[in-house]
Nucleic acid binder design. Structure first.
Lengths: 117, 117, 117, 117
DNA sequence: GTGGTCTAGACCACA
DNA sequence: GTGGTCTAGACCACA
């Protein structure tokens, strides 16, 4: 069961969730993905929420609607291969900005991270 | 001039901004902070937005209202000293969770971070 | 028609009013409560005043916001069942403190109460 | 050291405090009471607050200003003797109203009170 | 001057 | 329709 944060719109969390499923290899290029209704049922959200999420994913070229046949993962491997490093770079940049905003240099942030948990 | 993100409520961004000012040493315990109106003017937002932010900061014990005299930084040094490590820990945890969600182990995340930017 | 005291903020009186409605059995766990706008209309106050009251009630765990669906009574029966004795205990304690502050022992206070009105 | 509640104006709490000192026999009729400045110092409040409190007490006939000589306890023993039962009656009435608002009859309230603490 | 409260009204995302 | 947020502006008690 997915836990939804209530400070971020659910459809954006769905977009994120889907991208991570792709990154983790759940889908191959050209795979058919769950229908709006199926995904809505699985995630226990309103179908409109899925529509909005699929819309964004299609705009970004990650998935493609094929008329009345549903949505399919793009065959464009460049888009797919860029997904993971794009996330990673964003996460790294965000982390360093956050740490800097409370007075940590990059070196200190790395050190703190190593010792964490 | 502060730039407001439009996906997070301004009053929450003010809470965060203020905490970081405290972390960076802008205030000493027991210092009087800017009045609701002064801070509103400085940040160019409505006074009510500051009221809401100060309310949260007071609930968390970081500042104290002294009725008609304004708000003051708490003298409780434990609360103050916990602020920075609390942020740092949260940032580290979030970063590692994010990286894990796209398939990075902690060691890989640290490595990626070192090489970033 | 509710009469508002003018020495206590209306939103606090709303909090109190709502808790008493719960205590008197107006709601069951998981019930949907009046929307912000409906309650504002019924009590003839500004919606923002209700927002503030519901915010406090949610912080105390008595009600839960379900994003765009409205607010619901908690299913946590412990919170609900503690409500009435909690009020009663507070009232008793306050009364005895008051009476003590003007020179009555507990036994004298009980006696005075019996004979009152 | 007196603890001030922050939901009631301090001058009203001072009025109450003073009346209770009278009830508990701290003063005799015609006694000179503390000057505004002395009382302000003792209670650690702003002198204006004491001015406002003495003003109310004078309006109620409990104390009397004598030109430049300060304030004195009234010689009107009726006022003084009514003070205690007046408080007691108010406290009893308030308590019963509170308990009634959460579903207790008078008999139940008395019982609850006996068993309290 | 200070915070506290309240109103009227607006716009937004979401469902 | 639902809550969430924000603004503009007002009035208040208190110090």
């Amino acid at each position: 069961m997915v836990e939804w944060r209530n400070d971020i719109a659910i459809y954006l969390q769905v977009v994120d969730l889907f991208k991570k499923e792709v990154i983790l290899g759940k889908y191959m290029p050209n795979d058919k993905i769950l229908s709006v209704r199926e995904y809505a049922l699985k995630l226990n959200v309103n179908p409109n929420t899925i529509v909005k999420a699929y819309d964004i994913l299609a705009q970004e070229g990650l998935i493609e609607p094929r008329s009345t046949n549903g949505y399919f993962i793009t065959e464009n491997k460049e888009i797919l291969s860029k997904l993971k490093p794009s996330f990673a770079t964003t996460y790294c940049r965000e982390f360093l900005e956050h740490m800097k905003s409370i007075g940590y240099s990059k070196a200190e942030a790395v050190l703190m991270l190593k010792e964490s948990e």
